[in-house]
Design a protein around this nucleic acid. Structure first.
Lengths: 153, 153
DNA sequence: GATTATTACCCACTATTAACCATAAGTTAG
DNA sequence: CTAACTTATGGTTAATAGTGGGTAATAATC
């Protein structure tokens, strides 16, 4: 079956019970070891980030190397985990997104779902449009820095 | 059964008898060898730290490597253990948190419970908010140090 | 040893969540 | 072109979770 990465953009809606359908294409892209489970959390912007359970386990492993003795380490670990929730999708392919995440992303009913290779973003359509006009803009300097970064990896 | 780590944030309340419900999700994440038991103690901040019995045993092992000859080691070991109390939860999943810990965390009734992978934190909502605005903030330098730390592990 | 306070053990209620069933629109296959 | 299947969406029922209170057992105090 096709690629096992998340690509493309979809416009779905959340029903009265807070359930959101995950595009079939994305569900099929989940590895077997993720056990029909996505992990949702706060995204970097005013949105919701979604990972496969596998990807999340990787993140956890990294966080576990931090020291519980150091304040900065605790703060980082706390911020990374306090909003994270594993969600198994039901027989129809839907997950129930926690209310506090919906609120953080300013989502009410309509939603844009964006595939970003190894992660997924969920946006409120209006907020997304606002960001497109401002924060998403990159100048030549940004592009140059990114080019440098990718070459050094 | 799903993931066996603690993630997410919950807002619960302590009842008139001083009992606090542990989120079902966290109880299920407890390994069999922890025998329905959490260990509570003072957290690094103005909060209460909660560990699985297994995790606490690990911490004890670490403390045993310290030297009883060195003053600082004795002080650290003393501070880490004098407030630690193992608590078995009742048939409804609740534990009775010792009064001195509640006082230390400034908790009266309302409580925020935060999952941090291999440990749990209990906060007073107002105090948590205060810390969010100050101590939780990390600057670029902190982040860089953490990135370095995880990469070297 | 009697009295009081504290802790453990049940039972009960309600709201939320999860499991189940159903359908209409759209796709794919024969 | 039609039949079988998939997909997105809606609703209903059953189970679980969180909370509150009562009673018996235990511990502490006088």
């Amino acid at each position: 079956m096709g690629t096992n990465t998340f690509t493309g953009e979809f416009r779905y809606s959340i029903d009265a019970k807070g359930r959101l359908n995950i595009p079939a294409k994305f569900r099929k892209a989940l590895p077997e070891t993720s056990e029909d489970t996505f992990v949702v959390t706060r995204g970097g912007e005013e949105n919701i980030a979604v990972y496969s359970l596998d990807k999340w386990r990787e993140k956890e492993q990294e966080l576990l190397t931090l020291s519980s003795k150091l304040r900065a380490h605790r703060a980082y670990k706390r911020q990374a985990t306090r909003f994270a929730t594993p969600l198994k999708f039901d027989s129809q392919g839907r997950v129930a997104i926690p209310a506090n995440l919906l609120q953080h992303a300013g989502v009410d009913k309509e939603v844009v779902i964006i595939g970003m290779i190894d992660e997924i973003e969920i946006w409120d359509p209006d907020i997304l449009k606002r960001y497109e006009e401002t924060e998403f803009q990159l100048d030549a300097e940004d592009i140059e820095a990114i080019d440098k970064y990718t070459r050094s990896s």
